[in-house]
Simulated scan of single mutants.
Amino acid sequence: MIHPLRRLGLLVLWLALPLHAAELTVDVGYGQKTYTTAQLLARADARDVAIPADVAFKRAMRYRAVPLKALLDGASPDDTLQFVASDGFAAQIPAALIVQAHGSVAWLAVEDPAHPWPTLEEIKGDAGPFYVVWTQPEAMKIGPEQWPFQLVSIRRQPSVAERFPAILPDPALKTDSPVQRGFVVFQHTCFACHTLNGQGDAKLGPDLNIPHSATEYLREDLLRAYIRDPQSLRHWPQARMPGFDRKALTDQDLDNLLAYLHHMAGRKAQP
């Protein structure tokens, strides 16, 4: 039997352990690398970064962060990078936005176990241990889906078109058509949380085309309202879907997104 004083000592030691210490896996095609919280915080290029309008916390934040580009040595601007979170969120971000930045700069914010970040009100949980944040995001029109938190891995992937052909619109359509433009919007705003025709890596939201497209069971005005502010249509305290205001998604982008979803409703494919 453990003596009560020793048991108390073990409890104090357990409480002192870094509960948020974690590992990040990075693989851009030249072998997998693993970075621990301690390693990242100790890097010479780690610095304090101020984010005036943080996407996750909805306010100004400061982080200890590492330039994300420094962790992607060997990545080509033509690569597609997949950022996977512990909750099933899977964002596809063009490597060019990070390695050929023109104004916006991506940072990997690292949660210090000694100074944990606040709880995220929307999910009643933690954004750590790793979170991609951007300085001057407006310069390159970085969208809210390109700020993945609870990050566990970054991997180079083939293009979305190669991996998931069932989400492609009719190839006969012109590249500047509303449907094709909407396909681009879909990849930036929806594909990180939803699958379509059963294809995609995300595990958070329902499929947007099978068995029924959202365009088939929601009126156009209600669907628009839902995308702008999900809670305005269906109040659900545990809801995870963010709203997309006109800064994140212009009216023209929304028109194009709906054109794509309408088009894909006629191109259902079972996984």
Rank of each mutant, 00 (worst) to 15 (best):
A114F: 05
A259I: 02
P230T: 07
W236D: 11
I2S: 09
S76G: 10
A16Y: 11
P67S: 10
N209I: 06
L233P: 01
W134C: 03
H188Y: 10
P178C: 07
R47Y: 03
A95E: 00
L151Y: 05
W236S: 12
H235S: 13
A259M: 05
P129D: 01
E111W: 07
K58L: 12
R62M: 08
G198K: 06
A42Y: 11
K141C: 05
A38F: 14
S213W: 02
W107I: 02
R219C: 01
E121Q: 14
A166C: 10
Y63I: 04
P171W: 06
V99T: 11
L222N: 03
D229K: 15
L17G: 07
A239V: 06
A21R: 14
C193T: 04
P144I: 08
Q180K: 14
S104A: 15
G9W: 12
V84E: 01
A202K: 01
W107P: 01
L97C: 02
A101Y: 02
R156N: 07
P67W: 03
S159V: 05
G31A: 10
Y260E: 00
F130G: 00
P113L: 01
L40I: 09
F191Y: 12
T37M: 05
V110K: 02
D73H: 13
L218T: 04
L41F: 13
L8H: 13
V12M: 12
K268H: 09
Y217L: 06
L71I: 05
V12T: 12
N256A: 13
L41G: 07
P77L: 03
Q39K: 15
D170H: 10
V152T: 13
L72F: 11
R59V: 09
P206C: 05
P242K: 08
D229P: 05
Q270K: 13
V179S: 07
L41C: 12
K203P: 01
P178S: 11
S86M: 12
Y30N: 10
V55R: 09
R59E: 09
L24P: 00
D207V: 07
T195H: 08
K268I: 06
S213H: 02
F130T: 00
P158S: 09
R224D: 03
L257I: 09
A44T: 14
N256G: 05
P129N: 10
Q238C: 04
G198A: 06
H3Q: 13
A53Y: 08
F186Y: 15
D27H: 11
A192C: 12
A75K: 01
D221M: 06
Q231A: 14
M1Q: 11
R228S: 09
A109H: 01
W14L: 15
T36P: 05
R224P: 02
G243Q: 06
